[in-house]
Simulated scan of single mutants.
Amino acid sequence: MSEEPQNTKKPVPGYVKILAAAAVVVAVLLAVIILLPLLWPAPDEQQACLTAGQNDDEMIKVLYSTRDRGDWNCVGLMAEKILTASASNGHALYLAGEAARAGGDKTREMQHFNQYLSVEAKMNEAFEGAGPATCEFESNTLGYCPQRTGWIAYLMARNNFQTGRDSTNGQIRETFLKRAIARLDLSVEKHPQPFTAEDPKRDQLRQEINKELEKRR
C-alpha cells in the first residue's frame, strides 16, 4: 500500500504576511511622498511662483530665470497669471505654451501658440512687416519677434503632422497634414536661418509630411 507524499513545507506564519503587506504599503507611501512634489509644486511653492515680482514686467524677468533653471511647473503658473491681466503678452503666451509642452499637454500648448500667432499676425500688419528684430525682454516688452514666431510655427507644424499621421479619418489626416505644411512654410518665412541643432529637423519634417500626403493620393 503506497503512501501519499507528505507536504514538508512549513506554512508562512501570519505575522510574516502582515509584515510583508506593511512593507508594501510603506513603499507605496514613500513613492507618493517623493514623486508628488516633482509632479506639482507644493502650495507654498505655488504661492511663491504667483507672488514673484511686483508687477508684470518684473514677473516676466523672473519668468525667464525660472525657465533657465528648468522649473516648468512654476513657469506655467506665472505665465498663466500674467495672461489673466494681459492676454496678448507674447512672452507669457510663448512660455505658457512651452510649459504645457514640457508637461505633455499638447492641447494647452496649441491653444497658447495659436493665440500667439493670431496676435502676431495683427502686430505684423500694424508694423507693416517690420517688427522687432529680437525677443529679448529688455528691448522688446511685447514679446513678439520673427525668430520666436518661426520656432512656434515649427512646433505647431510638428504637432499637426503627428495628429494627421495618427488619425484614422482620411479627411482629418489630410486637413492636419496640409496645416502642418502651412505652419512649416510660415516657420521658414519668419526665420529662414538655422535653429542650430533643430534646423535639420525642419527639412526632415517636410519630407515626412510630403511622404504621408503621397500615401493618401
Rank of each mutant, 00 (worst) to 15 (best):
G103I: 03
T141W: 01
A121R: 12
T175C: 03
Q111A: 11
R148L: 10
G104T: 01
I82G: 07
T196I: 11
T51M: 05
L83I: 11
R67V: 11
R148T: 15
L29R: 09
L177H: 02
I209N: 06
E136H: 03
L38T: 14
F195H: 06
F176I: 02
Q111F: 04
Y94V: 08
D44V: 08
N159E: 12
D105H: 03
F127S: 06
C145P: 02
S167M: 03
V26I: 12
P200E: 08
Q54S: 13
T66H: 09
A92S: 03
V32A: 11
D203T: 15
E214A: 07
E128H: 13
A52Y: 00
G53F: 02
N159R: 15
T84V: 15
L77W: 10
C135E: 14
D185H: 07
E138I: 07
T66M: 10
S88N: 15
D199W: 06
H91K: 03
G150K: 04
I172C: 08
D203Y: 15
A130E: 15
G104I: 00
H191V: 08
A153K: 03
R179S: 11
L39S: 12
C135V: 13
F113I: 00
A31S: 11
V62T: 14
M123E: 10
M59L: 14
M1N: 12
C49K: 00
C74W: 09
K61N: 12
F113D: 00
E198N: 08
A153T: 04
